[in-house]
């Protein structure tokens, strides 16, 4: 495809590499929104990103946060979200590399927001077949930050995290921070007063081709980095099969084309929000436009 002209999509910060992916002095070629970009690591903590069109390069803004290198093609991008947990001293801050997923970015966000699939896709880990009910929760459009939140979410989980030793009723808060990023807070197994923070930042390469980055800020003194990553990747690769087999891959915003229930309240709020911001990239109904 050609580069999207959708101003809403262009004015987002998106990841283009994970910190450490490129050796100092090295570089990689990748893509965002159909635009080829070149990412150079110029120093231990410094990167240079440029949009590449043939032989000409246009330098793009760069930020390194949440274990990722972010850039944007827009002139007035929506700021990156503030996630306080990543600044807490005792947190395990871990990225999981990135994982390719052939679908639209919105399918990833919706899957991340969804509790109803836990029993079927993450069986005996995040859900159990004899407890499939999704209890009522609330969704909010927080206008001051223009984010979608889902609060008061609870779900019975047999093994909620790497640190879990048995089942628990897990409390979740979900937070959609931009069209292409989402996170959750879930209560720590060993300390219910605190929350693990797990994010998904999406690099949309093309409309139905993404890279998913999963930075985490976890309270866990026991597990190795390898353990934490293995747990998170195992969950994500279970979801990936679903994501790549939803039809269509582009997200339909027409409320009659897919039939939600009460458990999908967060997805309904997300779609409504996407529709209101008039985003076109990766949206089914906007293809002819």
């Amino acid at each position: 495809m050609t580069v999207t002209t959708d101003p809403v999509a262009l004015n987002q910060w998106v990841p283009c590499a994970w910190d450490g992916q490129i050796p100092v002095g090295g570089s990689l070629d990748t893509m965002i929104f159909g635009q080829p970009i070149h990412v150079q690591r110029t120093g231990e903590d410094s990167y240079r990103v440029a949009a590449v069109d043939g032989t000409t390069e246009r330098e793009l803004p760069v930020q390194v946060r949440y274990t990722c290198v972010f850039t944007t093609l827009g002139d007035t991008p929506r700021p990156l979200p503030e996630i306080a947990e990543f600044d807490e001293a005792d947190r395990r801050i871990t990225g999981c590399g990135n994982v390719g997923v052939n679908t639209s970015p919105y399918r990833l966000v919706e899957n991340f927001l969804d509790m109803a699939h836990f029993a079927f896709i993450h069986t005996d880990v995040l859900g159990a077949l004899d407890q499939t009910e999704v209890l009522a929760y609330r969704t909010e459009h927080r206008k001051e930050v223009d984010e979608i939140w889902a609060i008061d979410c609870t779900f019975y989980q047999p093994a909620a995290s790497k640190a879990a030793t048995g089942g628990q009723l897990t409390r979740y808060v979900y937070r959609v921070m931009s069209p292409f990023s989402v996170m959750l807070y879930k209560n720590v197994v060993t300390d219910p007063s605190r929350n693990d923070a797990i994010c998904v930042f999406i690099q949309p390469k093309r409309e139905t081709e993404c890279l998913a980055y999963m930075p985490m800020a976890i309270v866990d003194e026991v597990s190795t980095v390898g353990d934490l990553i293995d747990f998170q990747q195992s969950i994500f690769l279970q979801d990936r099969v679903i994501l790549e087999n939803q039809r269509p891959a582009l997200l339909p915003l027409d409320p009659t084309s897919e039939l939600p229930t009460r458990a999908d309240a967060s997805s309904i709020a997300y779609r409504r929000w996407l529709k209101a911001m008039d985003i076109r990239f990766g949206i089914l109904e906007k293809q002819a436009a």
């Binding site: 990225g95 590399g97 390898g226 990553i229 293995d230």
Partner: peptide, 10 residues
Amino acid sequence: VQMNFYPGRQ
């Protein structure tokens, strides 16, 4: 023995 195959390339 848990290996960090990706991204750690252990």
